[in-house]
Lab assay of single mutants.
Amino acid sequence: SPISQSQFIPLGEILCLAISAMNSARKPVTQEALMEHLTTCFPGVPTPSQEILRHTLNTLVRERKIYPTPDGYFIVTP
């Protein structure tokens, strides 16, 4: 029987999409709110552990794709 394939999207890209959507909705993007958003909006995607989430967010900050503030994470705009 054929095996169904799913699209692979890197966690960093999913986080950027989620942060962008939450920023547009003016929702604060904390790590907890981000986990909740991922569970709700990406039900088929396994939720990352806190450690993996933190590591991926730090990587995105180093890559200058997002930036942290006391009010949460935001997408870097050119």
Rank of each mutant, 00 (worst) to 15 (best):
E63H: 12
E63R: 11
L53K: 00
Q5C: 11
N58Q: 10
F74K: 13
E51I: 01
R26V: 07
P78I: 02
S49I: 00
I14D: 03
Q5G: 06
I9P: 14
A33E: 08
A21E: 14
V61G: 03
P46W: 04
S24D: 11
L11E: 02
S20G: 10
G44Q: 09
R54S: 13
R54Q: 15
H55R: 09
Y67R: 13
E63M: 09
K27I: 08
S6G: 10
K65L: 08
P48S: 01
F8R: 08
H37W: 03
A18Y: 03
P28D: 15
M22A: 03
P43W: 03
P10H: 06
F42I: 13
P68C: 14
T47I: 15
T56V: 10
A25T: 04
S20T: 12
L60D: 00
T39C: 10
H37Y: 04
A21I: 03
L11Q: 02
S1N: 06
Q7P: 11
S4N: 10
I75S: 14
P46V: 07
R54E: 13
T77R: 15
C16M: 10
M22I: 05
T59L: 15
L60R: 00
K65E: 04
A33P: 02
E13M: 04
P78Q: 06
P68Y: 05
S6E: 09
Q7T: 11
V76A: 12
P46M: 06
K65G: 01
S4G: 04
E32R: 08
F42L: 07
H37E: 06
F42A: 09
N23R: 05
T40S: 12
E36K: 12
D71I: 02
I3T: 11
F74W: 12
M35D: 04
E32W: 05
I66D: 00
Q5R: 08
L53G: 00
N23A: 05
S20V: 04
M35S: 12
V29Q: 02
T47C: 06
C16W: 09
R54G: 15
L34D: 00
R26T: 12
V45G: 06
I3W: 01
T39L: 07
C16P: 06
M35A: 13
I66T: 02
S20A: 06
T47F: 02
T39E: 05
Q5H: 06
C41R: 09
L34Q: 00
P46L: 05
N58D: 12
I66A: 04
L15H: 00
Q7K: 09
I75M: 15
N23S: 06
T39H: 09
A18D: 00
T30R: 07
L17S: 13
A21H: 04
T69S: 13
T40Q: 13
N58E: 12
